[in-house]
């Protein structure tokens, strides 16, 4: 399932910056984020709450909520720039070329209309099909996402479905027009572990069979490890590390990613204490100069306090950390009051 190497990426995000004007000045919530997604590839995006994952996803589907705005960089889908399109044009692309799946399936479905009606309407918006053709396609989609008895269930209302089935209906909705890219923001977070596995299996199968690319936003490393081809780890609005999922999970290069992986309790080995990263991710108003991770980093040097690292090759991944620069982290920091 490795990403296609030579041809053009499906999605290119270049130096994306997202700002929020507030009364205390402008907050930079997403700072210089770049990544690509190849056709048929699953890119996982992980990070702590507030790291900027959803904002990045929303910018791609053109649903950034004001006062948030793209303040720099560009987003290209199949080579065409989409971050500066007028609303109407973006709306067409959103259904037809990019599908979206959100965390809470109930908010994506209208409780007043039957599932079938919502599917048929979406299909007809994007494809020139008659009502009966659209209905046939809706049933097909429901079958595809694994809803048993689709012919019958198509007339049911969202509340008559369980959480897992609702999320499948949302996935079916996102698939209506055969999009090239699906942005899935925490698609399994609201679901039970057992149902989570079903949804993950479904997403994987869809990618394989249709060559759809997926940007999978989540803070669950387990989901990423199972589903993604590559993973981008975000921290305080920046990409800390990006690379093939196996490498990032097993041989993380950035100190934050390493700490993150260590803090996940795993089966097999029971330790007295889990590895933990002390401290917390800084708020947007308090991001330190230099490397945003420096207050919590045990490897930091003088350079980390002043100069900001960009992504650089680090083993098989790319990490934003001076440890992987020929110049190193700079002089050691001798005395520092370490906060408990």
């Amino acid at each position: 399932m490795a990403a296609a190497s030579n041809n053009q990426p499906l999605l290119e995000v270049r130096n994306l910056r997202i700002e929020f004007p507030t009364r205390r000045g402008t907050l930079l919530a997403v700072d210089d984020v770049s990544f690509d997604i190849a056709p048929g590839e699953v890119l996982g995006v992980v990070g702590e709450s507030g790291a900027g994952k959803s904002l990045t996803g929303n910018a791609i589907i053109g649903l950034l909520e004001p006062p948030g705005r793209v303040a720099g960089g560009e987003i290209r889908l199949e080579g065409r720039r989409i971050d500066n399109l007028p609303y109407e044009e973006m709306r067409k692309i959103r259904g037809a070329r990019i599908g979206a799946i959100f965390q809470d399936p109930l908010t994506s479905l209208n409780p007043l209309y039957s599932v079938g009606r919502q599917l048929v309407e979406t299909i007809q918006t994007h494809l020139p099909l008659s009502a009966s053709q659209a209905k046939a396609r809706a049933i097909e989609l429901l079958q595809e996402v694994g809803i048993p008895g689709a012919e019958m269930r198509i007339d049911h209302y969202p509340h008559q479905f369980s959480g897992g089935m609702r999320q499948r209906v949302v996935i079916a909705l996102a698939l209506c027009a055969g999009p090239r890219l699906i942005v899935a923001d925490e698609p399994t977070t609201a679901l039970d572990v057992s149902i989570q596995a079903q949804i993950i299996a479904l997403l994987k199968r869809l990618c394989r069979e249709h060559g759809t690319a997926v940007m999978l936003v989540t803070h669950d490393m387990g989901v990423i490890a199972e589903t993604a081809d590559r993973v981008a780890v975000m921290y305080a609005g920046r990409v800390a590390e990006i690379g093939p999922v196996r490498e990032v999970v097993k041989h993380a290069k950035h100190p934050y990613t390493k700490g993150l992986m260590g803090s996940i309790p795993s089966l097999g080995v029971r330790t007295e204490r889990l590895t933990q990263i002390d401290g917390a991710m800084p708020r947007l108003t308090e991001i330190p100069p230099g490397c945003a991770f420096n207050p919590r980093c045990t490897f930091k040097g003088q350079r980390c306090l002043v100069e900001r690292p960009n992504l650089m090759p680090a083993g098989a991944t790319r990490a934003a950390c001076w440890l992987h620069d020929s110049g190193g982290v700079g002089a050691p920091i001798l005395k520092e009051t370490v906060d408990a």
Binding site: S162, V193, S194, A197, G222, A225, E226, R246, G268
Partner: peptide, 24 residues
């Protein structure tokens, strides 16, 4: 046993999570 099968596999041994059949 079924619950244990649904634990995400972080070790990437290639073990497939077997989705649980049926709903609660």
């Amino acid at each position: 046993r079924m619950l244990l099968d649904t634990i995400p596999d972080l070790e990437m041994t290639g073990r497939q999570r077997s989705p649980v059949g049926g709903e609660v």
